[in-house]
Design a protein around this nucleic acid. Sequence first.
DNA 1: CATATTAAGGTAAACGTTATACCATTCATA
DNA 2: TATGAATGGTATAACGTTTACCTTAATATG
Lengths: 339, 339
Amino acid sequence: MQNTQNRITIKDIAKRANVSPRSVSLALNNEGRLSSATRENILKIAKEMDYQPNILARGLVNQKTYMIGVVLPYLTNSFFTNIISDIEERCLADGYDILLGNSSSTIKSEKGSIERMVNRRVDGIICCPDPRYFEFYNKLLGTGIPLIQIMTHIKGIDAKSLLVDDEEGGFLATNHLLELGHEKIGFVSFHEDYYEEIQLRGQGFRRALVKNGISLDLERFEMPSDLTIKGGYDAAVKLLQKNPDITAIFSSTDLAALGVIEACLDVGKRVPEDISVVGYDDIDFASLQIRYPLTTIAQPKDQIGALAFEMLKSLIAGNQPESILLKPELVVRKTTGQK
Amino acid sequence: MQNTQNRITIKDIAKRANVSPRSVSLALNNEGRLSSATRENILKIAKEMDYQPNILARGLVNQKTYMIGVVLPYLTNSFFTNIISDIEERCLADGYDILLGNSSSTIKSEKGSIERMVNRRVDGIICCPDPRYFEFYNKLLGTGIPLIQIMTHIKGIDAKSLLVDDEEGGFLATNHLLELGHEKIGFVSFHEDYYEEIQLRGQGFRRALVKNGISLDLERFEMPSDLTIKGGYDAAVKLLQKNPDITAIFSSTDLAALGVIEACLDVGKRVPEDISVVGYDDIDFASLQIRYPLTTIAQPKDQIGALAFEMLKSLIAGNQPESILLKPELVVRKTTGQK
DNA sequence: CATATTAAGGTAAACGTTATACCATTCATA
DNA sequence: TATGAATGGTATAACGTTTACCTTAATATG
């Protein structure tokens, strides 16, 4: 099948309307000085011929594509797809489109995605940068492309960020457990240290302990993990072995929390009667769990997409938006209870 | 901040290399007859200047954008995001990018998304069309744009489709229950009839009954629902009221199945000891359920994205790929058991 | 009535590529 | 020694818009 797409151009309309291409352009964009008679005639003909503007050509001369790049990890993670969905909604309203990129698999894919978007001359980029690529992003920003980093950020690069206060989140989670009377609390942390944000959750954990005058031997109560389900499971098993008197566990992600709960149940502990579990992220399935809907820290995900787009738009318009730090919220469901 | 993006063009390189722009183009695309000396020199300079091709300009002259549009409903549904993720992976390998569209909210958004993509001159579209928009799609296809419909299809339009055999899926689910000895089986159906695919699940359900010589009063055993969690919950409550002797329920989606299970547990039935539940889709949280991992029908989601892209590529290349009907699979987990 | 102003629209050049067509050389061949 | 092919390159015109800069005619101004 030949692609015989609608190739009506502005010139075709011009010919039919007996005017110059310029007049057609003016009429279509409702600009300039044209008699309303010609203007209306042109618009009528354009409609008749089912004219569709070629946005490429327009972009070429305007130096503006009305496309933004969105590069997030884990396109299958509902947390990120919620954000994309929100951004998309905002984009539409402003005539922007989203060029999608996935940074999850490899270094190559994150840098590759961004480079492709630059080549496509997107007007700006929203991304969740891997903190290890300082050099790359630093150079990228040197070219002046508007970029907003969300959820994570790279220290020292010249880009505004939209973050959620992970330290506060860690504090909220832990404080909730303390208020329920728990004192022996396990913490499932992340085994890599380059993501500052996730480490901050641990700082919040520690601050809450200190504030409540509780001192724990962190060598025993903190267990690093890759934060997958299996990772959470293994971490919980070890925590319970080391500390049989544990009555609560705070997991750095919901996914790992799932594993934690499985592990607790498998060793015969009831949740939350014998052991309370708090997750982090409020990922979709946290609320969708049958019988074990997860108590967790919710990121304000319904704001993130929209705010990020606003910031980017402002940047594109030449302004200097401020970085934003959003506050997380505790969502109490059924996996935590009184000690 | 001014956007001072990298605006090195082919002409800048030409000047530095003392050759014509044409030669630069040839060198960069590794075409034509150029002495290896000049070719290498050009490439070297291009690299030094950190040249990035302008894909817009290229697309304008080639009449090819190397972008494809992907328009799916529910960007937040992991089933669809898995597909997008797979398509994206394939795209990359072939130098394509994805322009994202969401058709979930309104008619306007589905048609709007597609129209925007056409204006952007995408090389092709993968979509999940709403069967009610026959006219729109029919006209669209008249323009010759390559389009592949996945998961759903519109009867009578000239577009190839990639579908999964929902009738077979319904059969598999029901047959599984019958093999476990269940005879009084409830069925949660979809309350709208325009999605032929979902109705087919019901046909498979009925075929399995007939094949096993079981006759049920479908007035009593089939319950229409909107297939949300709440819808599933309500449907199950009604089914159990009408038929206290029910020992199994087949739900047209996993989401509704979640509600079904909640309802069963709430009226004091154990799952699967007292009542077995089968879902449909194998959505992420089906396997992520703590204690209630769902027995369900899995769509071959790891194939769909890749196959759809291959079909589209073939179409773009001017070939006529065949429509494909994939087979679903039964995944037995923990919500079904012997009667 | 001469001149300035303005309304309405045209011409042609951009934007950054690639494609078509053509022009020089050089070198082997009859 | 013409002739033809191979080699290495260039000039120019697209692609579909927008825009800077003209032109013309009509109207206003004094």
